[in-house]
């Protein structure tokens, strides 16, 4: 699936269809954001309804960096702007990590529907904050006039930028896979399946969950930073609860707690949006039907259906 995602945009570029290249970039980044969410929601069982906060914050950091670099002013009169992605990416991840540490530290004291609601509430706070900060465009959003730069690469070139995004997705998936195979992953899996067992085994669930939540937000935040650069624009809509919902739908469609789930979900989601969205404004009706079908008949999503519907958390092939 990854190979296909790599080959098609290269072909599209050679055939002179830059639109498809940027569509593939978009798909890649949405998938990467969902990979981040999957770590919390799928592997950790933490149903975050507020991941748009990190996606949007990442985006805003790319946007604000570019804004200040463009007119050579400083952020809050202190920090100079930058259009160097090697500066902006770590900054976006750091900021999202810190925000998630705060939100997670509070939210993880609750469980179930309260956790869902409290993560939503925090994300809405960030949303309204961005909406009402006129310096950075308020509700109109903030344009990025020149795509941020990566030394030695021409990020303006659609294919180059796609390859950057693709690398990000592959790294995020590799990190997830490695993490879930480790001791930390074993503890996180047990925290999801049976919290009592984990505590009785001498491991406190809370710090394990909190760290997974933070890493999850950092991946989603990096995807957000790239997403803003792809569109040349960042607005509060990246922070809205619709965005959180879309990411959740993608993870559930693709298969909760499956390595390839977010990618499969993103392909399905963007695919339906592109194909059906061209035919009817009401394409989300069909998305709803597919989601209903997945939840009712293929509880482990597309990936679960493809490999026989075993439950997640099973053994890696030993």
């Amino acid at each position: 699936m990854l190979a296909l995602l790599l080959v098609l945009p290269v072909a599209a570029d050679l055939l002179g269809h830059p639109y498809y290249v940027s569509l593939a970039s978009r798909l890649t980044l949405i998938a990467m954001a969902a990979v981040g969410l999957n770590l919390a929601l799928g592997y950790g069982g933490m149903i975050s309804f507020g991941h748009a906060a990190y996606f949007g914050l990442g985006g805003y950091i790319a946007g604000i960096g570019a804004y200040h670099a463009f007119d050579a002013t400083a952020f809050m009169g202190l920090l100079p702007g930058s259009d160097n992605l090697l500066v902006l990416w770590p900054l976006a991840m750091l900021a999202c990590g810190l925000l998630a540490l705060l939100i997670g530290a509070v939210s993880l004291r609750t469980t179930g529907v309260y956790f869902i609601m409290i993560t939503l509430a925090f994300a809405q706070m960030v949303y309204y904050f961005a909406n009402s900060w006129p310096t950075y465009g308020g509700q109109d959003g903030l344009p990025i006039y020149l795509r941020n730069q990566l030394p030695g690469l021409d990020t303006q070139d659609p294919l180059t930028f796609f390859l950057v995004c693709f690398t990000g997705l592959v790294l995020a998936m590799a990190l997830t896979s490695r993490l879930m195979g480790s001791r930390f992953g074993a503890a996180l899996t047990m925290a999801r399946l049976n919290e009592t067992r984990l505590a009785t085994a001498g491991i406190s669930p809370y710090p394990i969950r909190l760290l997974a939540f933070v890493v999850s937000a950092m991946i989603t935040g990096l995807a957000g930073a790239l997403y803003a650069d792809l569109n040349g624009f960042v607005s509060p809509s990246m922070l809205s609860w619709h965005m959180s919902g879309e990411l959740m739908v993608i993870v559930i469609l693709g298969g909760v707690g499956r390595l390839y789930g977010p990618l499969a979900g993103a392909v399905l989601f963007i695919g339906m949006e592109t194909l059906l969205g061209g035919l009817t404004e009401y394409w989300q009706l069909f998305l709803g039907l597919v989601l209903l079908g997945v939840v009712l008949f293929a509880r482990h999503g597309v990936m679960g259906w493809l490999d026989g519907g075993e439950s997640p958390g099973r053994e890696p092939h030993e």
Partner: peptide, 17 residues
């Protein structure tokens, strides 16, 4: 998971268990 707790901490991220 029990052995894991007594043989060091669980913040190890790389080695497959």
């Amino acid at each position: 998971i029990g052995v894991q707790a007594v043989s060091g901490h669980s913040f190890r991220f790389w080695t497959p268990v």
